[in-house]
Every structure is written in C-alpha cells, then in structure tokens.
Design a binder for these strands. Sequence first.
DNA 1: CACGAAATAGCAATCGATTGCAGACTTGCG
DNA 2: CGCAAGTCTGCAATCGATTGCTATTTCGTG
Lengths: 353, 353
Amino acid sequence: MTARRSACAGHANYMDDVKKPGKIRNIAELARIAGVSAGTVSRALADKSLVNKETRERIQALAREHGFRPNQMARRLRTQQTGVIGVVIPLGHERRQHISDPFFMTLFGYLADELTESGHDLMLSRVIPGDDEWLDRIVDSGMLDGALVIGQSNQFDVIERVAEHYRPLVVWGSHRQGQAQCTVGVDNAAGGALAARRLLARGAKRLAFFGDPNGPEIAERQRGVEQEVAKALDASLVCFPTHLASEEMAAQIASHLADLDGAVDGIVCASDIIAMTTIRILHEHGISVPDQVAVTGFDDLPIATRMVPQLTTVRQDIAAGARAMVDALRRRIAGEDAPSTIMQPELIQRESA
Amino acid sequence: MTARRSACAGHANYMDDVKKPGKIRNIAELARIAGVSAGTVSRALADKSLVNKETRERIQALAREHGFRPNQMARRLRTQQTGVIGVVIPLGHERRQHISDPFFMTLFGYLADELTESGHDLMLSRVIPGDDEWLDRIVDSGMLDGALVIGQSNQFDVIERVAEHYRPLVVWGSHRQGQAQCTVGVDNAAGGALAARRLLARGAKRLAFFGDPNGPEIAERQRGVEQEVAKALDASLVCFPTHLASEEMAAQIASHLADLDGAVDGIVCASDIIAMTTIRILHEHGISVPDQVAVTGFDDLPIATRMVPQLTTVRQDIAAGARAMVDALRRRIAGEDAPSTIMQPELIQRESA
DNA sequence: CACGAAATAGCAATCGATTGCAGACTTGCG
DNA sequence: CGCAAGTCTGCAATCGATTGCTATTTCGTG
C-alpha cells in the first residue's frame, strides 16, 4: 500500500484564533478578571451554594466565554481522587503483540459504556507481564481510583498478591476456592459441559476439544467437557491446544483435523472464533457441518449469528458481566465489600450442532 | 502438563512482604528514612547523575523495599505533562450505546500497541456528542498530552474548530480540501471504485450499495461506487442506507434484498460485517455467492478470511494507519508540523466476488 | 438602634513531586 | 596552606485547584 501526503492547511486559521481574549491559564487569573478570589472561583465553578447565585453565574459565564476549564491534575492532586479506572489486559500466555480477541474487545466496549455512564474515565493498559510487578506498578501509580483486570491469563498469583492489599480491584475470570481477588465470570466448567452434552445428545461419540488450556478459563471449559464425556461410557475425547485469535490458529486447526483424520463427529471449540475457523476449514475439506461433524462455539459473540451455518454456542452474557464488574468495583471504591459473581452460561442452539 | 505454581510459596512470600515497615506515603517520608532531603530522593528516583551513585542506589533500593512509587498526579502537575493520550470515539450518527464496530476496535487495539510502545498511557473516551463542546472538554481538561479521534462521524465541523487551536490532535477519517485537522485515512472513494470495478469485471450489471452515508467515509465509498458505475454505461446502481454493526442491520439487509427482489447481481458492502451478514441472508434464501450474486466487503478484518466463502474485500491497512496516526501525533506534540496521510486501499480478491 | 444569625467572600495551608540556585564539602594543584 | 574547580545535597519556590477557618457584610427582629 502506498501512502500519499498532502499538506495540512490551517495555519492561517490557527493565528486567527488567538484573537480570543488572552487565554486564562488558571483559576487565579479568572479570579482577577472577575474581581473575586481564587477560592470563590473554585466554588463557583463547582456550583456550590456557598457563593451567591449571581456571582456564581457571572463567573461561570466568564469561564465559558474564555474557554477556561480547571486543570484536572491539580484538582486530582488536591482531592486525592482521579475519577479514572484502569482497565488492564494481561497478555501472559499470548504471543501476539496486540489485543485482538473479540471477546475481550467486546467486554471492553461494555466496560467502557458502564464506566462512562458512572462518570469515570477509562485508562487502558495492555501489559505483557515481564516480571511480577506489572500490576503493582499500575495500581500504585496514584492515578487510579480502581482497576479492572480483563482475563487472568497465567497471572493468577500476581493478581492474588495485589488483591490482598488493594481493594478496588475486580477481575474477569474464573473463581478459585478461597481466593482474595473479586472475580466476575461464567462457570466455565458448566459451559464446557453444556457444549459436550449437546454434542452427545446429537449422537456424537468421538469428540474433540480445541483450545489453549494455559488460561484457567479455557482449562476449566476443557475439564467440563472431559467430565461430561467420562459420564458417557461409549464416548471418547481428544484435546488439542489451540491458540486464541492468533494467526497460527488456522494452521493449528488444520493440523488437528489432519491428526484426527476423520475420526471425529463433534468438536467443542473454546471460543466462537475458533469455531468459526474450524467450520471454514471443515467446509474446505468438503465436510458438512453439522451433519458429518457438529461444532460448538463459546461466547456467543454477535458474529455467531452472522455466519453460515449459524453457530450453536455457549453464551456468556457480556453486558451483564460488565455491569457486575463495574458494580462490584464501585462498591469496593466506596469501601464496601463486594463478593465474586459466578454467572451461569447458557447453551444457544442454532445450526452448527 | 501445565506447571502450576505452588500457592503456599506465593503466600509465604507475600507475608514476608507485609512486614515491610509502615508504608511510605510520599517522597518526603522516604527522604527522612534515607536521611537525605526530598529533592535528593526525587533526583535519585529519576536516576539523575547529579546524585552520588551510591546514595542513588541506596535510595532506589529503599523505595523498592517499601514498595514506594512517586505520585503521578503531583509529578504531572509539576512537569505539566501527563504522558497520557486521549483516544476518542465520537458516536454521532450511531444509535447504539456501545462501541461495537470491529473495525474501530481493531484500530483501537493497534493504537494501544503503538502508544504503549512509545511509553504513553491511553485514556478512552467514548462520546455521544450532545453539544458542540464534547471535544473541547476532552482536550482542555489538562490531563492529556494529545488526542486521537477515531472516526469523524458527523462531527467534522466540531473537530475542525478544535483542530484550529489545538495542535496535538490527529483524526482517523477522510480528508477534505483545506482542512485544519490532521487526518489519517484511506482514500474511500478509490476503495469504493475498486470494489465496483471488481464486480463489473465479473460481469455484474445490476449493483447495489449497502451502507450508511451519514458518516463521511461511507459516503465517499458510495460516491466511488457511483462514479464507477456511471462509467459503465450498461450498469445500474441502487443504494440502501444500512447501519453499521447494529442489531437492526440484519433486518435492514433482509428488507433491502426483498426490495431488490432478485434484481441484483453484485453488492458492494460498506464494511466486512455488512458483507458477512448479507452473505448469510443470501445463503438463507438459497442464493449462491458469488455465482448468483457477488459480494464485496470493506476493511479486510481478520474474520474476512474465516468465513465461508472467504470475503473479497477492500483492504485498509489498519496497522499502518495506527502507526501513521501515532507518528503524526508524536510530531505534533513535539511542536513540529505533521501533514495528513491518505493511504491507498487495495482490493483483496478471495471467493465472494 | 442594636444585636445576633445567616449569607458570602477571602486567606492561606495543602496535596506531592520537581528543579533552579546556592551552599557545603571534597579534591587537586600551585 | 590556600584557592579553584568540581561534586553533591539542601532549600524553597512552583505547578493549580480545593477547603477549613475566619472576616465581613447583610438582614431580620426585638
């Protein structure tokens, strides 16, 4: 792809703009112009009833006219609260340099909505944990009122250590008995079981699981599948580590299918994206879904309904999850205690299984 | 298979850690403990050669031992720079309450990577413009070193006004002659033309365009298609407004197809997502793609290769775009001038057209 | 007319780190 | 031994808004 540049106009305009009455740099200057003290201006801008309504409105008008907005850094330093929530995505077991998993992205979008709604700003940190301090650095920086961690990756212990002394922290991920961290997540084992049960109910006997068990959530999904298959005495299961949302995924899946060499009639995929790719590759090999091989996804992303065949998948209610996370965080910021939430997954039966 | 850390070990370490003497709140306390002045501590922590190497290391060790990290708010207030870049997504013409368009999300991911790499933090604002001040509020808050706007939506004028006096601002979107804002984007008209030309080359005569022309970028794609179709004397074109990434999209598309009632053999879709949905609906009606109707997408998102049939689409190099944006921003923060960038789109020919 | 209460505005300390300037101390050399 | 040069450290001002406390004014009422 070639890039062409064009000159940026706008210099002239820029100069024009300076005609604005000399810009006010701080509250003190505004105060001088308004003929009051800085304190009064501060209170006026905060709309406090301590200052006379008229003065208040006069000052607010003046501020608007000059396009003045109080400096947030100073305000935050003084009030010791920032109104900023950190959203952290640890990329512990993923090679990929960037956040690409649509599930996380979707969750992130919902979190952004919830936080915006509650008047918070959102600061994103995408970390590839290089040491055990990555989370400490974030929460101790003094610029956050709280933090949300999206996905535990393989960093459960680090998160746990921080959670023990840093309250306003909520994590999307799986729940372990007796943990200190407040998590919100779905019962992944149950979800895996749902998918397996569906395939077995269709009559599938030779199942496969595609997913990377390095993340605890995927590992649990796999466990759920395993347990369910074990219950059905005549069924078998093979598990294949498969990257999430990486370029290698397609190649890995192709190789798994080659390994299986047709000895499979049901595949539980650890995510919708994996399922989507699996279905495409099956299709290329002339294998029909769900007739010859049934496939289930996990997440129920919007694309699940947009594909051919529409995906049978295990739904995680992302919007509800985001709401629960922000809610728990809000409670914890306020000093209350908020317990973990484990949501129940739901099988959405469409066409692929 | 997976090596898991012993929980005990982690816990013991933590307890060790807790015996750290009462936590240090600020640089002055650390200074007292170290027996030096606050200024020295500040310089030591910044690793300045002005302070003796031994003292420096001693202080750094002390800080580490106490888990002390200097307060960022204070630092930022004093130094007048925040290291934070605002990323703004204006949702002017979208009803949807949340950021769901995968294209924006992908761009966002790449921006996050680039910014992290250059040592910046990223603050997200998702705004539904309620007045003309939304962008002013963001850039004047004094907490940003610069801002990136993802998509102009229908807010070109507002952005333009702010760009006239606020330099460190870079926008993803289309370029208008003589604009003040620095934009990075693809030549959308050329992209639309590419798609149309491909369909015409396949022999399609009765084209349709699906997309919402309220955003300037989509409008230009549509214009590109129109011009190309006009050149081919025997071809016709119908345009249907279609939401981007909204729940209504599927219904809208179904209704468009009903309106067309088979009188179409080529569809230019304004995004990959629209194309994906269109193909699914065609499939449901038993219409084969590309044999009966050829379909093109726009963006070339990762999913384009994962669907059946794989999508013929117009590629925007998102990674390059993100790089260009961050680069321009960096230059503008440094006070240099950075021109707009118009990238050339590329047709990626796969199976759907 | 006077006194007290209520309403308003100002003063100045404070949040915590940074940094220019000056002073103290060391070292070297004549 | 003294002076200059060079190192290191401390002092105190600064960034800009907030807020407890105090001072002033206004107003109502006895």
